[in-house]
Design a protein around this nucleic acid. Structure first.
Lengths: 185, 185
DNA sequence: GTCTATACATAGATAGAC
DNA sequence: GTCTATCTATGTATAGAC
């Protein structure tokens, strides 16, 4: 019964964050208004400011993904397979937080930084597993490939990608990724 | 001497369009203001409105690329080679008009339409040259790959891509593209 | 602790002077 | 044909009532 003090606050905060993520993911930072977020969350616009202080801060909080649980699902086979699993996850249900970041990465400086950091991390991890002087470049290209497919599929909605089953995309993309990573089938 | 009527007008219009393209390409549609465009072009903000009627119309005009002169440069070898040449051109000097469109494609509906149309056209052209039922999907994936590299390199500025010479990117990307297009080396 | 009312800034668009 | 001045709308942010 006494749980109504911070309890209710956390509940509102969560609803606001969920609404913010959805709107940021759908329209990007600039076109998302505090008012719209508040309306979607069923709260007063002033409350959003009260909780988060600024639109930018709301965005930062909304974009903070859950701990990103590294490669827990598909038993991590080879490197290309793991990268494709990541993409598979992305093509299916990329988290709203990630979508929000990706949506704004070309136009909002803060989102661009977040994207560079996230992609840079993946490039470093992949590059560390590759031999050769051009390891980092190969890793960057492979990461960019997945970025391109994700953007085309999730954010631009290119029809051929939309219509294709995930396994089909996987099947066609795998040899390309293997070639890029310098692995032999 | 009598050339000062429409002549001067065209000159101003051109300066405005150039400034608009640069700003749209740099910051995207939302963050670009009529006032900033006018200042960069050295004209009055009201003049921009006088000429183009609205910010949206200015954007549309600014994004209209030159006739896109299809594949004139590198003597068009194989399909992968031609696609890479396009990318090569992109990595070097992608036109400000294209950059402006790409920059805003994730957040501005009009730019998204333009991007879908442009990419869809390329997918159709590439797909038409490929055999098999999955021709369009392969073409869409190949196009997305180049999109991803372009975005990573030109718009996000991923360091490993920035630092790499164009030929190196070409060399590493070619086998991947060949694999994707289903061609044999 | 939540909402009403409002201040303040920005920016797109317009009217009219020069 | 170009600029000054302004209108109007939107949206972030704040102050104060309940």
């Amino acid at each position: 019964m006494t749980i109504t003090r911070a309890e209710r606050r956390l509940r509102s905060e969560r609803r606001i964050l969920d609404a913010a993520r959805a709107l940021f993911a759908d329209r990007g930072f600039e076109r998302t208004t505090i008012r719209a977020v508040a309306a979607a969350a069923g709260v007063d616009p002033a409350l959003v400011m009260q909780y988060f202080g600024s639109k930018q801060e709301l965005f930062s909080r909304a974009v903070q993904a859950v701990p990103t649980k590294e490669g827990e699902p598909g038993e991590a086979r080879d490197l290309a397979g793991r990268m494709l699993e990541t993409l598979g996850m992305k093509l299916g249900g990329l988290s709203p937080a990630s979508l929000a970041m990706l949506r704004s990465m070309l136009t909002h400086p803060e989102a661009a930084d977040a994207a560079r950091t996230a992609l840079g991390g993946q490039i470093d991890r992949v590059g560390a597993e590759l031999p050769g002087d051009d390891a980092r470049l190969r890793a960057a290209l492979a990461t960019s490939v997945l970025l391109g497919v994700t953007v085309g599929h999730q954010l631009l909605g290119l029809d051929p990608l939309r219509d294709a089953p995930r396994e089909e995309i996987d099947r066609l993309l795998r040899p390309a990724l293997l070639a890029l990573l310098g692995e032999r089938e």
